[in-house]
Design a protein around this nucleic acid. Structure first.
Lengths: 213, 213
DNA sequence: CATCATCTTGACCATACGGTCAGGTTAAGA
DNA sequence: TCTTAACCTGACCGTATGGTCAAGATGATG
């Protein structure tokens, strides 16, 4: 009863293999860092011979670049929720939810991103200077508007954003520490909910968007 | 007018060289990660021949272990302030100040720590499971006491601690991103003060330790 | 001053890694 | 069916890296 699979088209092969490689690469880069990752390790995890990796991605660096770019893309996309929100409770609340969900579902990506930035962003510095700067300015303007409209306290928008990034990404980047402090067990569904609630409550209370208990 | 330096004693030589090596190693490990760091790079930065490093630290891993242990030590020491504080405003406020100061003065150490944890703590897992667990339990007890005494809102102490770690360490670990968003300039004294104030205000307000603006 | 333990270092080695390539296989297209 | 372009991969190569070592220099000790 072997599965009767008709041959994949060339395009499907390409898409399939690139996907396999990128997924494996993300994991390995996250676990070992760029320097500690080896093409052989990635190849083994992807189930392909090493030479095949070099067929699709000429160098280790080009593979790494693709991984980081994909992560940056998701990173920005998570912030769409921020816009069009009537106020901080909805906007920031949803943003926290979205970023916590990323931390939960794609911890490897978050780690690769953290590693890249920690190492002075050798690959995506240009993105930081253009896209990220614009993105940040835009959200800061929204926060300022909410402040002007009296929907929250006059906090520094920049540091509020840093706090949002730091707090949500912490659950991915330091996930191992958190698991250790949780008796070497991953957070349960309920614990993830509690984490989200805690973060949202403290921050939204902290900026005066919801009343203190 | 050459300096007339009398010969260093053997003990001084050892202390001096170990210090040189450990400082250089911390920087290199922070910038390149464990895998990306090379003994040659560390040797060059320390101004010593590579073979000399292996005289004091037999392997790259043993050197790395010493670096991480030193950082963990500082990490815990910063929390002494936490104890004996009459309430969250003083205790948590001082803790935030202390950890922000570490992020400012020793960003490399913070990065090495982050990297170690992100890579599943291959070297200090036992410390996490013993010392860190105890430390965390202790501070959670203090926070619970403050809650019982009505000095702050009944937030989850665990997630409050995570938020404190995440937010303060973010200024070191993601310092490059922060600098980029600051027009490629390091934060000035005033900006560091503003950062500290923002963090303290939002968190202390968020837990109901100080009134909302 | 003589002996010893400690420190120093250039030269060397084995290994692992990123990357190459030639020769083969397979789907696409005419 | 035949040709071509895309895909596949075992074997190979140069280099960089962690680590070793033997021989010498230097401070401690009595």
């Amino acid at each position: 009863m072997t599965q009767e699979t008709r041959p994949l088209s060339k395009k499907d092969i390409r898409r399939e293999n690139e996907k396999l490689i990128l997924e494996a690469a993300e994991k390995v880069f996250a676990e070992a860092g760029f320097g500690g990752a080896t093409m052989q390790l990635i190849a083994d995890l992807a189930g392909l011979p090493k030479a095949n990796l070099h067929y699709y991605f000429p160098t280790k660096e080009s593979l790494y670049r693709r991984v980081v770019q994909a992560i940056f893309h998701d990173w920005l996309k998570a912030a769409d929720i921020f816009d069009n929100a009537p106020g901080p409770v909805e906007g920031i609340g949803a943003y926290i939810d979205a970023k916590m969900e990323i931390s939960r579902r794609h911890p490897a990506g978050s780690k690769v991103w953290a590693s890249e930035v920690m190492h002075r962003a050798p690959v995506i510095q240009d993105y930081l200077e253009t896209t990220l700067v614009e993105w940040t300015e835009g959200r800061m303007a929204i926060i300022r508007r909410w402040i002007d409209e009296g929907k929250m306290n006059p906090v520094d928008p920049r540091h509020l954003l840093y706090m949002l990034w730091a707090t949500t990404q912490h659950y991915a980047d330091f996930g191992h520490q958190i698991e250790t402090l949780n008796g070497n067990a991953p957070l349960s569904d309920a614990q993830w909910e509690a984490a989200k609630d805690s973060v949202k409550t403290i921050i939204l209370t902290g900026i005066g968007a919801i009343p203190s208990a």
